[in-house]
């Protein structure tokens, strides 16, 4: 309750970046560890020079900074597949299929392992274009926002997080403007989940309020209590 507002609305971009660092990525190690790597999250098989192995992104970045490996950029980050995603994005109304953590992964890789990515500049440009196209789509989503739900498949975590404070608040206000009778129908059990991030409002809990001004029920319940 007492959190500052920018923390109340869910995750901060830095926290999301931290979460993304747990995603697996392929590296070609330049060292031989000879033994299993025992990490809190699990045990990794030993790294062998010039062999590809899957490690979490944070480990890959850490090794990369020590010049102990080269990172194999994920398939979707190549120029061709980004171009394909972009044209998909522009043609279709839905969001194109990109990994959940695409913005964060791309940013981390471009920042730390720029030399492992072929033509980083065009990758950067394509990612920017993609992001802008997707942002425009999220904006269209506002128009389709109604009192029951809004569907956005394939949207990334960073993108959700960006629109979350605005959408949840708007959603909550829209629910309130619904006349009392209709509001009851639109509350499913699942809508309650949204409340947690908002900090102020649980969408499912307006039931008592809507019936409070229904005179017959007020009379009935008070009468019984006496």
């Amino acid at each position: 309750m007492a959190l500052p507002r920018h923390l109340k609305n869910g995750l901060t971009p830095l926290e999301i970046e931290f979460l993304a660092e747990n995603e697996p990525i392929e590296i070609a190690a330049a060292i031989d560890t000879r033994q299993d790597l025992e990490l809190i999250a699990g045990t990794l098989p030993p790294l062998r020079p010039l062999q590809l192995s899957q490690v979490p992104l944070w480990l890959a970045i850490s090794l990369k900074k020590k010049h102990k490996c080269s990172i194999v950029p994920p398939q979707w980050m190549s120029v061709e597949s980004l171009q394909k995603s972009l044209s998909d994005e522009q043609e279709h109304l839905q969001f194109s299929t990109l990994p959940y953590h695409y913005m964060e992964t791309a940013q981390i890789l471009l920042e730390n392992a720029c030399d492992d990515i072929p033509s980083p500049d065009s990758v950067r440009k394509l990612l920017k274009d993609l992001r802008e196209t997707r942002q425009a789509k999220a904006r269209m989503g506002v128009a389709e926002l109604d009192a029951s739900n809004v569907q956005m498949d394939n949207i990334g975590l960073m993108e959700i997080n960006e629109i979350r404070p605005f959408f949840t608040k708007a959603f909550y206000e829209l629910q309130k403007l619904k006349p009392a009778g209709q509001a009851l129908d639109t509350f499913g059990g699942s809508t309650q989940d949204y409340g947690g991030f908002d900090g102020t409002a649980s969408l499912g809990s307006t039931l008592p309020e809507t019936s409070r001004f229904n005179r017959s029920t007020t009379h009935g319940s008070r009468g019984d209590a006496r």
């Binding site: 609305n9 971009p13 970046e17 629109i163």
Partner: peptide
């Protein structure tokens, strides 16, 4: 609403 939206888009921009 405007304030909330402004803050979140500013924080992503900053990132």
């Amino acid at each position: 609403l405007y304030k909330a939206g402004l803050e979140s888009s500013a924080s992503v921009h900053q990132w």
